[in-house]
Design a protein around this nucleic acid. Structure first.
Lengths: 288, 288
DNA sequence: CGTCCACTTGAAACCTATCAACTATGGTGG
DNA sequence: CCACCATAGTTGATAGGTTTCAAGTGGACG
């Protein structure tokens, strides 16, 4: 509710309310996340801003950095939704990551020759293409940037593992619910969700390729969720009515999103708003 | 079929047959993998050896580095099997990674305060506990070690994403088959599998927690696989009869294991034995 | 020789997939 | 403005894969 801050925030504090959340850094949500969740200083943030300074506009349903490109670049999503996916030999598709503003589409290109996973946009997207060599140079001069990249990689790892748990051990209803909770939290961090409401630019078929079900079944599951009053749909927006009960129903604990932040060396800094905070703030571990 | 080499291999070649495969480096399979898949020089390898020089012996079914420890250490599995897992609120368990000799159990501790995923042994294990500070010091002096750690992290991501695809889009039979193929390849790299045969020290219930099924259904699936002559059981050993047809049935392509290796900067070095090599060597992409 | 644990088997219930319409929505062009 | 079209969402009936529960088998080990 505070007025948005336009001036560059001086430096993230070790605790307290975040102003960066209300200041999406003029469309540079990666900077928002770094200010929010790391202790990078102004000089380091500025280096990142420079690296991101050549944005490209992409159409919806477009491939980002196809496999053949050789992956000498990183693609940073500045605006819009995208996803990483894998096609199986029988033609089915598994979406392994939903990419939101502030996400790096192909972090593995830093270390791998190429990934066999593809990336495509869902909506019109703004993407910064960053030469890997430039990133490496920046890390040499500012080693903490390397730590932050490592942290982002570990974060992806945690998200993949959590989705594994969803795919393997949660029911359709729990999984859908879990996905909505995760999206709400991640979007809130970059200022794309407010008051439990956000735009969901995915078809039910795309959702089904995330959670490993059929679009028909996703449809029925969403209907059930709506029927129980947990979720509402307003046009293309999803409105989450009762987050606490949804969290409980899904067994959703945001810990794996590591909102406690990182100081680049594995030590936590807490800068997260209470409404998104990990479990001790809102107990939700009672019996499912 | 070449005679095992005892002397330290001079340095990995850019191509050709690997001798390290026959030389499991005196029980230090991580060194084997690094020799096999990276271009670290003798000095760097020696630094790693020093870091791993304090092994600990652990009982089966023991927790490795429980959550409360604060994660100031990395745990490197030198011998035995372990797994990373997650307990859900309803008591069910999802195993998110099977850890084999040469794997790092908790790489995320480098960047995260702590993971909410636990690690436990399956068999008696030998584990090296490495202070994270020592690792960081080593990286400062030998930056390529940092690249290799990043590569190992990206590799874990790729394996998790592949399992996502299995959990979401493959049938029980395909998934079990895929798991067996993956284990065979990974074990072969560290000299724990020969001629399509390896010891599988997991109960069917543990397998079921990997692939998100019931132990009963895993049982029936394995029986079907045995009945079709694809797989055989000899005591605690699994014998894979027809790898090519299994690969095809599972849609298994070893590319995601990145056996093409890494030179620490995203460029590939090919040192992999042909029997394990990626798809161009053994076409297996015909219709499932 | 008894016990424990893992593995095995069967029958029934349940969840999810499949297939095939049908409806709603938004965009386009006449 | 309306007819038309393509796409996404919705619904129903049926088939099939997987779970559940319960019981029984088998081998390893003290």
């Amino acid at each position: 509710m505070a007025t948005p801050t336009r001036s560059r925030p001086p430096r993230p504090r070790a605790a307290g309310v975040i102003r960066a959340l209300q200041d999406p850094a003029a469309g540079e949500p990666l900077l928002t996340r770094l200010r929010l969740l790391t202790n990078l200083d102004d000089a380091e943030i500025e280096v990142v801003r420079q690296l991101l300074s050549v944005p490209v506009r992409l159409a919806p349903k477009a491939e980002i950095g196809s496999r053949g490109e050789g992956s000498r670049r990183l693609h940073v999503l500045l605006d819009g939704w995208a996803f990483r996916y894998r096609l199986l030999v029988d033609g089915s598709r598994q979406i392994t990551a939903i990419l939101l503003p502030g996400d790096i589409c192909d972090l593995d290109a830093m270390h791998m020759r190429s990934s066999e996973f593809s990336v495509a946009t869902l909506t019109p997207c703004t993407v910064a293409r960053v030469e890997i060599g430039a990133v490496r140079d920046a890390i040499v001069r500012h080693p903490r940037l390397g730590d932050v990249l490592g942290w982002l990689g570990a974060l992806e790892n945690a998200m993949l593992a959590e989705r594994n748990a969803c795919l393997g051990r949660r029911s359709a209803r729990e999984h859908v619910t879990h996905l909505l909770c995760e999206l709400l939290v991640r979007l809130s961090v970059v200022g794309r969700a407010h008051d439990g409401r956000f735009a969901l630019p995915m078809t039910q078929e795309e959702v089904s390729d995330v959670i490993g079900l059929t679009s028909v079944h996703v449809n029925r599951t969403l209907q059930a969720l709506r029927g129980d009053g947990h979720v509402e749909r307003r046009g293309h927006d999803v409105v989450i009515r009762d987050l606490a009960s949804l969290r409980k129903a899904a067994g959703f604990r945001p810990d794996y999103l590591h909102l406690e932040g990182c100081d680049g060396a594995g030590r936590a800094i807490r800068t997260v708003p209470s409404e998104l905070a990990p479990t001790q703030h809102q107990p939700m571990l009672s019996t499912g």
